[in-house]
Amino acid sequence: MLTFIQSIGASVIGFVRELGKIGCFLLTALFYVFTPPFLLNRVTRQIHFLGVKTILVVVLTGLFTGMVLTLQSYYVLVTFGAEARLGSILSLSLIREIGPVLTGLMVVGRAGSALTAEIGIMRISEQIDALDAMALNPHKYLVIPNILASLIVFPILTSFFIVAGIWGGYLVAVQLTGMAPGVFFGAMSDSILLNDLLLGFYKALSFGVLVTWICCYKGFFAGVGSGFGAQGVSKATTDAVVLSSVLILVCDYFITSVMIFG
């Protein structure tokens, strides 16, 4: 019995300690953002790494998400004779929820995992130590460029997703079911408010920071308490993907509730 309670205690302490470490990691990074030197060329490179290579995946998922959403909504709405609202439902759900969330998840899968693996390998092969020994701050070289890049990349990718989604919706609604384009787009422009766009934008920014933060953290401390060598890196990568995906959804709920009721 005692050992059972002890083990609960130990895991709670471990969890709190990990939380503290993750928090400190972000704070350290934020601190160094504002101290020179500013490595802008590294930010550009990470924009390429996180963003440019992910466009295709994001556009494809956006397209098909829009298509299937339209298909599903259309058959429900038609039974109420409310299919004129289709454009509004599609665009609002894409802008407010599905766009930022799915884009975040796609970036985690495409680039976040690669980020953790890359930094993790640098950790276990002492490359991070080598940077440190040269008196070059590893946070500046490996972490901050990713976080800054994500602030640019995530909103842009999210908007690509949304546009692709709406275009997919248009294909299904107008080309397939024969709805008038004016009805489809008219409903959209009537119902989208600035607040909806802001909500989507804030979400994209938050998910960007969240994903790069978690993925860099997991890579940065690969092999510390998670097995060594290749196994340590693979565990770090899995952890990073799972944790950032779950946190995107959790965060999504809280941002929504704050924006709606706050």
Partner: peptide, 11 residues
């Protein structure tokens, strides 16, 4: 410093 295993930047 020269590390035992080199610690070269492999990229």
């Amino acid at each position: 410093i020269v590390f035992q295993f080199g610690a070269l930047f492999d990229s």
